[in-house]
């Protein structure tokens, strides 16, 4: 299973390396969202700084949804749903590989969004260890849900507009928890972040397991 996961992960990374769809489209979109928040809040840096955790995570969520859609599109192009069924490959391995790939891209998106938010909102990202730890766990959680839901939403033709509707409510606890944990980190009260980190960890673990269980059913059904 791990062998399959690594193979799928490597394959997705090298496809992205070739096509650079994420780099050319999703990363700029992330930047656009961050800039739009600046416009929306009338460029008041105090306001922006206060709202930074929430704004940051909203931007990351939309960008991650796009990354998930891209990961699904790669398989769609190759008609891989059928391919993997035909080759009788462990679906949970494929699932893990896809989650790993999306999560890897997600780290890049998060880094870009964090840097641009820090610069544009004129905010200092104190406690980087806590912030990045939260980012990694939240990233895995969203990817774990997103990969299953993207497969669910693929009918006879792809329905991209459906994906955010399905994903965002399900991952809303992650948004809440990650934003609150970041708030605690930025306010230099890291101890307050712990319950939120717990929720994030629980969410990610639960949905990784759920995903591994149902991904095969979704592929076959």
């Amino acid at each position: 299973m791990l062998r399959v996961a690594v193979a799928v992960w490597r394959k997705d990374l090298s496809i992205e390396w070739r096509s650079r769809v994420l780099l050319n489209q999703v990363v700029p979109v992330t930047l656009v969202i961050v800039v739009l928040f600046g416009f929306g809040l009338d460029a008041r840096t105090t306001l922006l700084r206060a709202a930074l955790p929430g704004l940051y995570w909203v931007s990351v969520f939309f960008a991650l949804t796009l990354a998930v859609a891209r990961a699904a599109a790669i398989e769609g192009e190759a008609n891989a749903g059928e391919l993997l069924r035909l080759l009788d490959i462990t679906p949970s391995g494929v699932y893990l590989g896809k989650v790993l790939a999306v999560a890897t891209w997600g780290l890049g998106i998060e880094a870009v969004a964090a840097a641009s938010a820090a610069i544009l909102f004129n905010a200092a990202l104190v406690d980087p260890l806590l912030l990045s730890g939260v980012a990694v766990v939240a990233d895995v959680g969203v990817s774990a849900v997103g990969v299953v839901l993207a497969q669910l939403a693929t009918g006879e033709r792809a329905s991209e507009s459906l994906l955010p509707l399905l994903t965002l409510p399900v991952v809303s606890p992650v948004l809440l928890a990650a934003a609150k944990a970041w708030q605690a980190g930025l306010a230099r009260t890291p101890s307050l972040a712990f319950p939120w980190v717990e929720i994030l960890l629980a969410f990610s673990c639960i949905y990784l397991v759920v995903g591994m269980l149902v991904y095969g059913i979704v592929l076959e059904g």
């Binding site: 090298s14 192009e77 080759l87």
Partner: peptide
């Protein structure tokens, strides 16, 4: 083994990389 109308290949990869991927999957 089955070959359908649609080539089940990853367009962005080279032919060799496609083969390598399937080899890694032990196909």
């Amino acid at each position: 083994t089955y070959l359908g109308h649609q080539a089940m290949l990853y367009d962005e990869l080279t032919a060799d990389e496609n083969l390598a991927f399937f080899e890694r999957l032990r196909v």
